[in-house]
Computed example of a mutant assay.
Amino acid sequence: MIDTKLRKYVQPVFNQVGKGFVRLKMTPNMITVMAFIIGVSAGVFIAFGHIVIPIVLLWTSGLLDVVDGTVARLTNKHSKIGAYLDLIFDRMVEAAIILGFYFLFKEYALAYLLFFISVIFNFTTFLVAASLFKNEGEKSVHYDIGIAERTETFIVFTLMMVFSQHVFIILMVFNVIIFLTGILRFIRTIRYASKLNKQVQLHEA
């Protein structure tokens, strides 16, 4: 939700950063891969008990994750492959962070398991919505707004690193929010699909 509501206010900053990458002749896909590698590296540092380094790496990865799309717009190099890589790599970075916490605090395995279940459910509803709803935005696919988006996830991960003694409760609360996001999107998508079915039936009649 933060991404959607505040993006227009900070986009000028991303545009300037994006122009720097354009001057360096960096393609959107190259930046996407960089964001992936740096994000996964944050998970490795978490596993070894570091705090500051993974926070810096995580947010650097997040910045690059925004900049790749900005560079794509600035250079008119939108691609389905880029959108595909972006969606998959984002989930893999999240998995790496949680895996890092697992190696550090194995006693919270239930919270990690529920996180993966909630993400699978939420991401599935996102993909189905993307396939059904008409894309009227700037992204390569329809982007259905949710309560828990990328920035919220990074904030939660940061809180888990800073307040490591409360990892379980922080992640469990976030799991509920992710589930709620998926449930609301599921209901919204079902209603939209039902509306499409009625339109088809009326057309055939």
Rank of each mutant, 00 (worst) to 15 (best):
I53E: 03
Q16P: 00
I97N: 00
G49N: 07
Q11L: 14
T151R: 00
I120K: 03
V33T: 12
R23K: 15
T125K: 02
L113S: 11
V200R: 12
R91F: 06
F154Y: 08
G20M: 11
L132K: 03
G182D: 03
H142V: 07
G82Q: 06
G146D: 01
Q165G: 07
D65N: 08
R150K: 14
F103I: 06
K198S: 14
F103Q: 10
Y108P: 04
L64S: 02
I51T: 14
S79D: 09
I2H: 03
V10E: 08
E107L: 07
K134D: 12
V10P: 02
D90H: 04
T70M: 10
G137N: 09
G69L: 10
M161I: 07
K25I: 08
Y143V: 09
G82P: 02
D144R: 05
M160K: 03
L159C: 11
I190K: 11
F48H: 10
Q199I: 14
I145E: 11
V173D: 01
Q199K: 15
L127H: 06
R188H: 10
F154G: 02
T75Y: 05
F121E: 03
I53L: 15
S79Y: 00
N122P: 02
F168I: 06
R191S: 13
Q11E: 14
R91Y: 05
V128D: 00
Y102W: 08
I88Q: 06
L6Q: 10
M26C: 15
L6R: 10
Y192N: 06
N135S: 13
H203V: 12
F174L: 08
F14C: 08
Q199T: 11
I98D: 01
K198G: 04
R7H: 12
T125S: 07
A96F: 00
L24R: 10
L57M: 14
T60S: 14
Y143M: 12
K195A: 12
I37R: 01
P28K: 11
L196M: 14
V22F: 04
L180E: 01
Y192Q: 06
T189I: 09
T75A: 12
I97Q: 04
Y192K: 13
V56I: 15
I55R: 05
I88F: 09
F89H: 05
L196H: 01
T124R: 08
L85T: 05
K25G: 06
F163A: 11
F179A: 12
A72I: 08
N135Q: 10
R73H: 08
E204D: 14
F48A: 09
F154S: 05
L132V: 11
F116L: 15
A129N: 00
L113T: 12
V44M: 07
I120M: 14
R73M: 13
S61V: 05
Q165Y: 04
H203C: 12
N175S: 10
V200T: 11
I88L: 15
S131R: 12
L110G: 02
V67Q: 01
K139M: 13
I178Q: 03
V33M: 12
T158V: 08
I169Q: 10
I170E: 01
V176K: 04
T4P: 04
L110M: 13
V167Q: 05
L63G: 13
P54A: 11
I187W: 01
Y143P: 00
L180Y: 07
F101G: 00
F123C: 03
V119S: 06
I169A: 13
Q165K: 13
I147N: 04
P12F: 11
